[in-house]
């Protein structure tokens, strides 16, 4: 794995951009550039800032530079029989851990193994003024100072340039198995609710009239769980494709949305894939975004535009004015001249 520390160079670049009030577009692997709105600014690459800062397998925490490709990180962890605790999407070999944290998506394991933000223990960033600051740490419990490192997750790089992150790892499960069951969605949902306390689920999605369940853990337990559930052996690619938003449903052009809703929510729309045991619903729907936002609001959930279609929409609905103003003040606290990924998350940032 490449081991190169570009901290000084990146901090200097942001500092210069701050002094000139000239926006920069933060790029690493470049595989997530289509997510969110189109930013303005000179590209600033973090790709060379790669490698492991600290890794003690017995502690189950790795501190890794933002430009490190996810697959390379996983390769290193696998030499110790470990994996990241959470399902991290990637979009090719160039996809980096920094990009994953910035966009903040979590794959199908989310309801069972947690969100990416749950796995982040600390981060070192370059602030919008070019200062190198560190928040959180490498230990599991830490309440000293505000939790700025988690704030970075999903902020699309608008609050800081990520230098390195400390994330949790876990022992690789002894066994993994995919089970497919033919069910209608309401029946599937009832079954999932019964299983998730007792069986070692690490994923549950529903597409094309089929419930796909991923089991992982001790071999004896996985086998026992499969026996209890019934169904046929499924295809592991169902879950990796879903994680990486790949395959027939995702590869088409046009707007791709995700709705985060209470898992029991009723669901009528066509052209969807249900993930996270019901809590996340991918939806292919063209045209007016307000239709999507309204459905999400009706279900007391949220909608986020992922990619495809009109980049000037989303990714999130604009919150009420007082809250938008608060978020804008938070943005200004970390990036006072609005130079980091300008326009990526909201038009005026």
């Amino acid at each position: 794995m490449r081991d190169n520390d570009d901290t000084a160079l990146l901090a200097a670049a942001v500092r210069e951009a701050y002094e000139r009030a000239a926006p920069v577009e933060i790029i690493a692997g470049g595989t997530r550039r289509e997510f969110g709105r189109a930013p303005t600014g000179t590209p600033l690459s973090v790709a060379r800032h790669a490698g492991i800062v600290a890794y003690d397998p017995s502690e189950f925490v790795v501190t890794v530079r933002a430009g490190t490709p996810i697959t390379e990180l996983e390769e290193l962890l696998s030499q110790e029989g470990q994996v990241l605790t959470v399902d991290v999407p990637r979009f090719g070999a160039a996809s980096t851990i920094g990009g994953a944290v910035a966009v903040g998506l979590t794959g199908p394991g989310r309801p069972y193994t947690g969100a990416l933000r749950d796995a982040v223990l600390g981060a070192r960033i370059v602030s919008g003024t070019g200062e190198v600051v560190r928040f959180g740490g490498q230990v599991l419990k830490n309440v000293a100072g505000f939790d700025v490192s988690r704030l970075m997750v999903g902020a699309y790089g608008t609050l800081g340039l990520l230098l390195d992150v400390s994330v949790r790892t876990a022992r690789r499960p002894e066994a993994e198995e995919i089970v497919r069951l033919d069910r209608d969605w309401p029946t599937a949902r009832v079954a999932l609710r019964g299983w998730d306390s007792a069986l070692p689920l690490t994923g549950a999605c529903y597409a094309g009239g089929v419930l796909h369940v991923r089991l992982a853990g001790l071999a004896a337990r996985v086998a026992e769980a499969h026996r209890i559930m019934g169904g046929e052996i499924g295809d592991a690619a169902v879950f990796t494709d879903l994680r990486d938003l790949r395959g027939a449903f995702f590869d088409r052009p046009g707007d791709l949305w995700r709705l985060m809703v209470p898992p029991e929510s009723p669901w009528d729309p066509e052209d969807t894939v249900i993930d996270w045991a019901g809590a996340q619903r991918f939806w292919r729907v063209a045209g007016d975004a307000t239709v999507v936002y309204e459905l999400a609001a009706r279900l007391r959930g949220q909608a986020m535009r992922l990619f495809g279609g009109d980049r000037s929409v989303g990714p999130w609905a604009i919150p009420p004015p007082a809250t938008m103003a608060l978020m804008t003040r938070v943005k200004a606290a970390l990036d006072p001249r609005g130079i980091l990924n300008r326009g990526r998350l909201y038009p005026a940032w």
């Binding site: 969100a115 902020a155 949220q302 986020m304 998350l345």
Partner: peptide, 13 residues
Amino acid sequence: GPTGEWPLDLAAL
């Protein structure tokens, strides 16, 4: 919201 996600993770803050 239902999954905790929000444009900025103000809940974490």
